[in-house]
Design a protein around this nucleic acid. Structure first.
Lengths: 157, 157
DNA sequence: ACCCTTGTTTTGAACTAGTCAACTTAAGGA
DNA sequence: TCCTTAAGTTGACTAGTTCAAAACAAGGGT
């Protein structure tokens, strides 16, 4: 495809900079990465990159809709590039791996709570908590727990 | 009713202490209170109560199932006493007020993602984001924003 | 009614994720 | 190439929460 990240950035009015391209690269490789993972990963291409810059880049990407921020309870925020398709997430209680899952009940019925109590709802956020396949094997669970932290986000659907 | 908090605590094997009763009282009055609100509220009955103690009490209550912890993205954790009925939450983007909402699609279908990707799911957490009735009136929005912080949790269904 | 065990509270420090502000750098249109 | 302004850098700082050791008290046993 000819739609490069540089193009996508310019389309949204953002300048094309090395930190931004690095962060986008890391996010392509780690579909659910936290800020720390992104800093570490992006330093492969840009060794002096600071965490604050990454936070700035992520805020910019999220605000123009190129990235989405998810915050599973009890864990640092994760970022993903899959946007605009109203999908949800499976989170493993044991190792923290995140997988994508399409909306459970069709198109976007998520947006219709049974009783909105006067609220105007614009988004439904769904997190399914459970155990990933690897963590269901008790013996393997411990070692997997450490591996999974390294490859956080490697188990996307 | 004759099921006092003291009873409920003993039933679960927890000792009955003043900090615990105070916290339970505050939670009864504020159905979605954060730790800080609880500390402040509980000090009405127990002025020397420390935040750490409240965190300890809340952990104890959550671990025996007397309370539930919810963590809306970007906000401190909230605690509620309504447990065991798989209900969800409406959160106002403007003022942070939280309201309860029953499971959108019947009994517990929330537990069935369309494709579980090998996960064994044990809970579905749903957060509906939007604007509460008060924050839908632009003119009033600003002043409401401050009020609502004080009465956080006052808008339960 | 008292004592003893063990769970709780207290006290104080520490930690993590993330934010803020002032300054420097560089993207990209003129 | 210059200039404007967005973006990156640097460093201090905060909120929310957790950890650890010592003091305390709930409630069962005697």
């Amino acid at each position: 495809m000819e739609t490069t990240w540089a193009h996508r950035l310019r389309e949204t009015g953002l300048r094309v900079t090395r930190p931004r391209l690095s962060v986008l690269d890391v996010l392509s490789a780690h579909p659910h990465a936290d800020a720390d993972t992104i800093v570490t990963g992006a330093r492969a291409q840009h060794p002096t990159l600071s965490p604050q810059t990454v936070y700035g880049v992520l805020d910019a990407l999220v605000s123009v809709g190129l990235a989405r921020r998810i915050e599973p309870a009890g864990a640092p925020a994760l970022f993903e590039l899959r946007v605009g398709d109203n999908h949800h997430h499976l989170v493993c209680r044991s190792c923290g791996v995140v997988a994508d899952v399409d909306c459970a009940v069709g198109a976007a019925p998520c947006l219709s709570p049974s009783d909105a109590a006067g609220f105007v709802v614009d988004e439904a956020e769904v997190v399914f908590w459970g155990l990933c396949r690897a963590c269901q094997q008790p013996a393997a669970a411990e070692s997997v727990q450490f591996e999974a932290h390294e490859i956080r986000g490697g188990a996307s659907a």
